[in-house]
Each structure stands twice: as C-alpha cells, then as structure tokens.
Design a protein around this nucleic acid. Structure first.
Ligand SMILES: [Mn+2]
Ligand SMILES: [Mn+2]
Ligand SMILES: [Zn+2]
Ligand SMILES: [Zn+2]
Lengths: 161, 161
DNA sequence: ATTATTATTGAGATTCATTAGCAATAATAG
DNA sequence: CTATTATTGCTAATGAATCTCAATAATAAT
C-alpha cells in the first residue's frame, strides 16, 4: 500500500481530514529515502514551489509518526531528525562522528538481545534504537594526522597549544 | 580517582581554570547516580543553597562531557538529559514508554555486534547508544485494558482494527 | 449541488531551552 | 602582590517547536 493511502486510512480512522498540504508533504518525504529534519523538508518543498507553512509542516509530523509513516531517529544540532519507516525494513545506524556519513545496517543479534532483555525484566518491548558512532574509513585515516580541529569537535582547546 | 580530581586533571591539561562553582556542580551530579537535565540540576543546587547561575551551569556541561565525566543520554520533553559515566560501567537503557521507568542493563552481545559491524564497514567505532523501549510489567498489564489512548501513543491506529 | 459543521491552514506571536555579550570578579603564573 | 585573562552572573539574543486566531476548505448531511 502507498504511503499516502496508508495515511488516508489513518486519517479516516481518526476522523481527521486529509488535505493537499499533507499529501504534498508525504510525497516529498517519500520521493527519496534520506533522513531529514523539519527545516530541510521545508526548503525541499519550497524549492519545488510548494508553499506549505512551517506551522502546518510541524503539525503534520506527529500525524506521520502516529500513522507509522516516519519516526524520529535522532536529535542533533539542536533539532530533531526523522526518517521514513513505512515500506522500509527496520535498521540501525552507524554514523561517522566527523563527516556525518550514515550507514544503515541490520543485524539479527539485535533482536535477540531485545528479546532476552525484555524477558529478563518482564517488559513488553515495542521498539529499539541502536546507534553506533565512530569514524568512517576516510576520516579515521585522516583523523590520526591533521584536521584535528573539527574532527574531534568534542576535544577543543587542545590543538591550540 | 575522584570525579573532581579527574576534572582537575582535564582542566590543567587544557589550560583552563578550576572554580568552586564547577566543583559544586560535579559534587551535586555525583552524589547520586540518577539521570538528570540542566533544569533539574539547577534546582537541586538551589535547594542546597548553592547559587550557581544557569549560564555557568550550561557552560559547565560541555566541559563535563569533554572530560569524560558525563554524557548526553537522550533528548526528551524538549530538553537534553545526561548521566554520569565516570566511575560507572557502560550500560544500555530499557525504558517504559508509559511511566518512564528506566532500567539499566549490560549485555556482552552488544559489544560483539559493535565489533562485527565496525569491521564490516571499516569504521573505528568509539561508542554506541542502545535503547529499548516498551512497557514495564505494571504498565503492560494495565495497558491491555483501559488507558489505551495514551499508552500506545507510538502505535495508534493499529489496535483499533 | 448546496449548506452546515468544524478541522486545517498560514501568518504571526509565544514559549522555552540553550547561547552569546559584557562588565565585574577571581584563578593562576610569575 | 601583581598582571593576565578565564570565569561568573546577569541580561539579551537565538532558534526550534508550539500556540492563537481569523480565514479557508474538507467532509457529512441535506
Ligand atoms: Mn535510517
Ligand atoms: Mn543510565
Ligand atoms: Zn567520516
Ligand atoms: Zn511503566
């Protein structure tokens, strides 16, 4: 089923009303599989001459989450980032702390751990978030040498001496 | 080594200056092992008649992170949450989506996955964040019956059919 | 198709966490 | 003890996310 149909279903079920603005937003989100944030999405829409107010965009996001189309993946740089989940298999993220590159991966062991821990504490687990952070091949190589400055952002105050 | 000594070491290394305000903050954070956020910490200090400005508190947090005393654990309710890491073994979190209860757990498999994935993509992995979300025993039990509404917030639209 | 009901929109104001600016203060080196 | 300059506290500023409200438009009922 199409993301838009999925959304219509949700809208009907909730007694809400569908609108062209909402469908435009969904279309834009699903025309690529990239992670995104509110502002990025707003600009993407603007570049395509779709003028949707930021208020509507922000108001739509929770609906997309509740309908199972997207989810929040991480908070970074002072704002939330999202990704589509509808139609995509679940995955975890591996991120380069330097260049920001993100690799999506899946590993069966993750689910096993989830089951084991859930059983151990009597929890009914509904989701998980597993993120690995490090340095990608390129950055790891350069990281050893120069470029220290913005590489290890967390370690400011050193390279000055 | 004491958290404060650890911090002094860091301060010296960076050519910064230590202050009673900073030590007070560290003391307050380490007098218990709870997760915390900036405002909570500010109030805890205030209740103990330690008047430290919010500005200083916010300015100190990055130093505590860089010195390896604390780390950001999650963003929720519009603000960041932290936890001490110095002196505590690494752990992951299991959280109840309803009552907010948090259980800390450790599982060796997590590290194995980290190593496997790191090798697979050529990343030098420096850290990970693994969070399981679900319903604790109590909430899961009640969740089946009434109170559905705010319980399964993330999965609305499904249990209705 | 027309009408009634009310959810949704867009523009702007508002909130709230976090930062930045600045003058006064105090931590360190010498 | 003095000089240097990092740090403090206060306030102002920033910016993401939310809210207000009048105008508009999506649905359901005629
Ligand atoms: Mn992804
Ligand atoms: Mn913890
Ligand atoms: Zn990289
Ligand atoms: Zn619970």
């Amino acid at each position: 089923m199409d993301p838009i149909d999925k959304f219509r279903e949700y809208i009907k079920e909730k007694g809400l009303r569908n609108t062209p603005e909402r469908e435009t937003i969904i279309e834009e989100i699903f025309c690529t599989h990239d992670h995104f944030d509110a502002d990025e999405l707003f600009l993407r829409l603007r570049n395509k001459r779709r003028r949707i107010s930021k208020a509507s965009l922000y108001r739509t996001i929770p609906l997309l989450i509740e309908s199972g189309l997207i989810k929040e993946v991480y908070f970074e740089n002072g704002h939330r980032h999202y990704e589509q989940i509808y139609g995509y298999k679940h995955h975890c993220h591996l991120r380069c702390a330097n260049c920001g590159k993100i690799i999506e991966f899946a590993d069966d062991e993750v689910v096993k751990i989830q089951e084991r821990i859930g059983k151990k504490y009597g929890f009914v687990i509904t989701s998980h978030r597993f993120e690995l952070v490090g340095y990608c091949p390129q950055c790891a190589k350069r990281g050893v040498g120069r470029k220290r400055r913005q590489l290890f952002t967390k370690e400011r105050g050193k390279e000055a001496r």
